[in-house]
Amino acid sequence: MSDSKFNPRTAILLLIIVLVSIIRVAAALSDNFKEIANFSGVGAIALFGGAYFSNNIKAFGFPLLILLLSDIFISQISGYGFFYGGWYWIYIAFILMVFVGKVMLTKINVQNLVLSTIVMVLIHWIVSDISAMYIPGLYEPTLAGYWACLVAAIPYELNFVYGSLIYGVLMFGSFELLKAKYPYLSLSRNTVA
């Protein structure tokens, strides 16, 4: 007899993450992709993975894999190169964002979701914008250049806040509703997600 059993909790969590990432990929097909690029669910995916997967490999691995696959797809259809200078800063920010979900969302409620979203967006803004310093001619690689980049990023980060909150409410709300209806989706001693 095998110890590995089908875990519906993991399957449902992963399904929610995949559905939101499909919306992100579909947005790249839009004519106004540059304007809506940061209005996505990637921040919510990071928090969601951190909050609901107790296993660190799944908590960090699933959201990072989804981000990587969707980034590769978006770079192929949009013409933006994937391995641009400093791209890894975005992934470092994403790892920190998952960590925020693990630490700040041990109890799921509206207050914690909003607070963790704000912290996550600040991390995204401060860490991922370091990548712009590596793109030749975009910003001077100085403190003044970094500050100019942060200021220029404010409208995009506002979109990131809105997207993260809306997708976060959809993702967390749908899973919490499913847990209320199907209690076996809650973590127990015998369930590891």
Score class of each variant (00 low, 15 high):
residue 135 I to C: 02
residue 170 L to R: 01
residue 114 V to I: 15
residue 155 P to A: 01
residue 132 A to N: 13
residue 168 G to C: 06
residue 88 Y to Q: 12
residue 100 V to L: 09
residue 157 E to Y: 06
residue 115 L to V: 15
residue 101 G to T: 00
residue 113 L to Y: 00
residue 137 G to A: 03
residue 72 I to K: 06
residue 81 G to E: 14
residue 157 E to M: 07
residue 122 L to S: 10
residue 76 Q to V: 02
residue 157 E to D: 12
residue 97 M to G: 11
residue 111 Q to N: 06
residue 121 V to A: 11
residue 89 W to R: 00
residue 72 I to H: 03
residue 162 Y to H: 08
residue 87 W to M: 12
residue 104 M to L: 15
residue 98 V to M: 01
residue 126 I to G: 05
residue 121 V to D: 06
residue 165 L to I: 14
residue 109 N to H: 01
residue 144 A to W: 06
residue 106 T to Q: 15
residue 164 S to H: 00
residue 118 I to A: 14
residue 140 E to C: 03
residue 121 V to N: 09
residue 161 V to F: 13
residue 101 G to W: 02
residue 104 M to F: 15
residue 117 T to G: 04
residue 73 F to K: 06
residue 133 M to W: 08
residue 92 I to D: 04
residue 79 G to N: 12
residue 122 L to F: 13
residue 126 I to Q: 02
residue 76 Q to L: 13
residue 131 S to A: 15
residue 167 Y to V: 00
residue 115 L to H: 10
residue 159 N to F: 05
residue 104 M to D: 09
residue 90 I to R: 04
residue 107 K to M: 00
residue 89 W to N: 04
residue 85 G to Y: 11
residue 104 M to H: 13
residue 163 G to E: 08
residue 152 A to C: 05
residue 88 Y to W: 11
residue 130 I to R: 11
residue 149 C to Y: 05
residue 102 K to C: 11
residue 158 L to E: 00
residue 102 K to Q: 11
residue 152 A to N: 08
residue 156 Y to S: 10
residue 122 L to M: 14
residue 126 I to M: 11
residue 165 L to K: 10
residue 120 M to F: 08
residue 171 M to T: 05
residue 111 Q to P: 04
residue 103 V to R: 12
residue 130 I to C: 11
residue 143 L to P: 02
residue 130 I to D: 05
residue 110 V to T: 13
